[in-house]
Computed example of a mutant assay.
Amino acid sequence: MDSRRITVIHATEASMAPVTDAFDRNWSEAELTHILDDGLSRDRQRQPQLTDDLRRRIHRLAAYAADCGAEAVLFACSAFGDAIEAAARQMAIPVLKPNEAMFRAALDCGDELALLVTFEPAGPAMAAEFGELANRAQPSARLTTVYVPGALDALRRGDESKHNSLIAAAAGRVSGADAIMLGQFSMACANADCESAASVPVFTSPDAAVGQLRSLLHGN
């Protein structure tokens, strides 16, 4: 039985169900644990850049997961890429950012990609991460980032239907893209609506991240 203990660290409660569903679909044998610091997203939103305090907080969360027996850590928060990379360099276990696997899958579709986000600070952070990857793997790639206002607030109020419809409407307005990426784990519930609204492939991060993590721990 493949019962590796994996800890997922969240900055919002809304990302917990999508990542749990992704593990159920792709790696149900894993022993999944969650850590939620729902102040992270609020504190990040107040800061134009990642602060030293936020960087230390990300590292402490990863270290706590390791102390509790995690064999790998997956961050489900998209606005902390640099801090997650710094934490990973100091840890003896794998520590993964949420979106690299999704980026790679979308790049296989072509050079023109669109990224939808519902948490505004995630946009620049993810665009920078994408740019670093594309410069190495596919320099001709170009990214358009679209912020979808109101969607995350709707989800936090429990109005998933409104959340999904706002994102799907934004996906339907995208033109000239070879693929669309939904930038946060919490957006995965809008995938079906986006696929109906868009004429190009739509990618979400939870399934791609779980697949990457499983391959990493199995050495293939």
Rank of each mutant, 00 (worst) to 15 (best):
residue 117 V to W: 01
residue 144 T to G: 12
residue 138 Q to A: 09
residue 71 E to M: 08
residue 206 P to D: 05
residue 182 L to M: 08
residue 123 G to R: 11
residue 54 L to M: 12
residue 203 F to A: 06
residue 76 A to D: 02
residue 39 G to P: 01
residue 30 A to L: 07
residue 30 A to C: 12
residue 207 D to G: 04
residue 87 A to Q: 11
residue 219 G to D: 03
residue 105 A to R: 15
residue 137 A to Y: 02
residue 58 I to A: 13
residue 3 S to P: 15
residue 48 P to H: 11
residue 64 Y to G: 06
residue 77 C to P: 10
residue 191 N to D: 14
residue 183 G to W: 07
residue 53 D to T: 14
residue 211 G to T: 03
residue 151 A to D: 09
residue 129 E to L: 13
residue 133 L to F: 05
residue 139 P to I: 06
residue 53 D to M: 08
residue 181 M to R: 12
residue 197 A to G: 10
residue 205 S to G: 10
residue 109 C to Y: 12
residue 1 M to F: 02
residue 19 V to T: 14
residue 216 L to G: 09
residue 77 C to L: 02
residue 39 G to Y: 00
residue 41 S to I: 06
residue 142 R to D: 02
residue 115 L to N: 04
residue 116 L to E: 08
residue 118 T to C: 10
residue 206 P to M: 08
residue 67 D to W: 00
residue 177 A to K: 07
residue 220 N to G: 06
residue 85 E to P: 03
residue 18 P to W: 03
residue 68 C to Y: 07
residue 208 A to N: 04
residue 207 D to M: 06
residue 208 A to C: 06
residue 196 S to Y: 02
residue 64 Y to T: 12
residue 96 L to M: 08
residue 51 T to L: 13
residue 204 T to N: 04
residue 214 R to T: 03
residue 97 K to Y: 02
residue 101 A to S: 13
residue 4 R to V: 08
residue 171 A to L: 05
residue 95 V to K: 08
residue 131 G to D: 13
residue 114 A to C: 15
residue 72 A to R: 06
residue 18 P to F: 05
residue 134 A to L: 11
residue 107 L to W: 07
residue 6 I to D: 12
residue 174 V to A: 11
residue 146 V to D: 01
residue 18 P to M: 03
residue 69 G to E: 13
residue 145 T to Y: 02
residue 55 R to A: 13
residue 106 A to Y: 05
residue 206 P to R: 13
residue 99 N to R: 05
residue 62 A to P: 01
